[in-house]
Amino acid sequence: MSTDPQRIAVVTGGSRGIGRAISTRLSRDGFTVVVASASGGAAAAATLDEITSAGGHAIAVQADVADEHAVAAIFDRVANDFGGVDVVVHSAGRLGLSTIAEQDLDALDDLHRTNVRGTFVVAQQAARRLRSGGAFVGMSTSVVGTQFPTYGAYVASKSAVEGMALILAKELRGRDVTVNVVAPGPTATELFLDGKTQEQINALAKVPPLERLGTPEDIAGVVAFLAGPDGRWVNGQTIRVNGGMV
Rank of each mutant, 00 (worst) to 15 (best):
K158D: 06
G56K: 04
A63G: 11
G243K: 02
A70F: 04
A169G: 11
T114E: 05
A66S: 13
S132T: 06
M245A: 11
Q6H: 15
R212C: 02
R94P: 01
A127C: 06
A205N: 06
A205K: 05
M139Y: 10
G231Y: 03
R131Q: 11
G174E: 07
D64H: 03
V223R: 01
A183Y: 10
A72P: 11
E102A: 13
G185L: 10
I22W: 09
A44D: 14
G231M: 12
R131G: 09
R7P: 14
L193E: 12
R94A: 14
R117N: 03
P216L: 01
T141W: 11
R28E: 01
K158E: 02
T3H: 10
V246I: 08
W233M: 10
L26R: 00
A227E: 11
V137R: 15
G152H: 04
G40P: 13
G40H: 04
G17H: 04
K196S: 07
R113G: 13
G138R: 02
G244N: 14
I51N: 02
T47V: 07
V35D: 05
V121P: 12
D104S: 04
E217W: 06
A60I: 13
A60K: 01
L105A: 08
S27P: 14
A220P: 08
A79I: 07
I22Q: 05
S140D: 13
D109M: 02
W233F: 10
G17I: 12
A101H: 03
I8C: 08
T141E: 12
Q198Y: 00
V11Q: 14
P209H: 01
N115R: 02
A45D: 11
D81R: 01
Y151F: 14
V241G: 08
K206W: 10
E68S: 08
L191V: 12
H90F: 07
V116F: 14
I167A: 14
G40C: 09
S140T: 07
T114M: 12
T238Y: 03
V207W: 00
A127T: 11
R16V: 05
V61F: 07
V88T: 11
V122R: 04
D67N: 11
V222W: 03
R20A: 15
F82T: 04
G118C: 08
K206T: 13
